[in-house]
Nucleic acid binder design. Structure first.
Length: 110
DNA sequence: TGGGTGACCATAG
DNA sequence: ACTATGGCCACCC
């Protein structure tokens, strides 16, 4: 029996991100009560790459709306492509309509 | 077992 | 306005 770790909590939140919306590492960390450990959120997602978890990790970006994690995908273009497919407008690895598609777990969830 | 590490963020200078 | 830095803590050798 595996212990339910911080990583698992991160995965749960990511799973809840609606299609066509994005959120940030910091927001997830904040929602989990560890706003100063935003770094770990990214690292948690990184660990999913090797595994076959089907998580919309492409919907998680940094607070500036930049796709900082794109280099960690199988292809750097995959993240952008997936987001655009969901209606997110991206230019120069940055989400243009960030304010519109931003999904804050601390507000949307309760 | 312990130390290094990391897809970040907020603050201080 | 921009750069530097400290914090945080689960995971992996």
């Amino acid at each position: 029996m595996k212990k339910y770790t911080f990583y698992d909590n991160v995965f749960d939140v990511v799973r809840l991100i609606p299609e066509g919306r994005v959120t940030t590492y910091g927001s997830i960390a904040k929602y989990l009560g560890m706003m100063k450990s935003a770094r770990m959120v990214g690292w948690a997602l990184n660990s999913t790459i090797n595994k076959n978890l089907e998580l919309p990790v492409h919907r998680v970006i940094n607070r500036n709306g930049i796709l900082t994690g794109k280099n960690h995908f199988s292809s750097p273009f995959k993240m952008k492509k997936l987001l655009e497919k969901e209606g997110v407008v991206i230019q120069n690895d940055q989400v243009i309509n960030f304010n519109e598609v931003y999904w804050d777990p601390t507000q949307e969830l309760l």
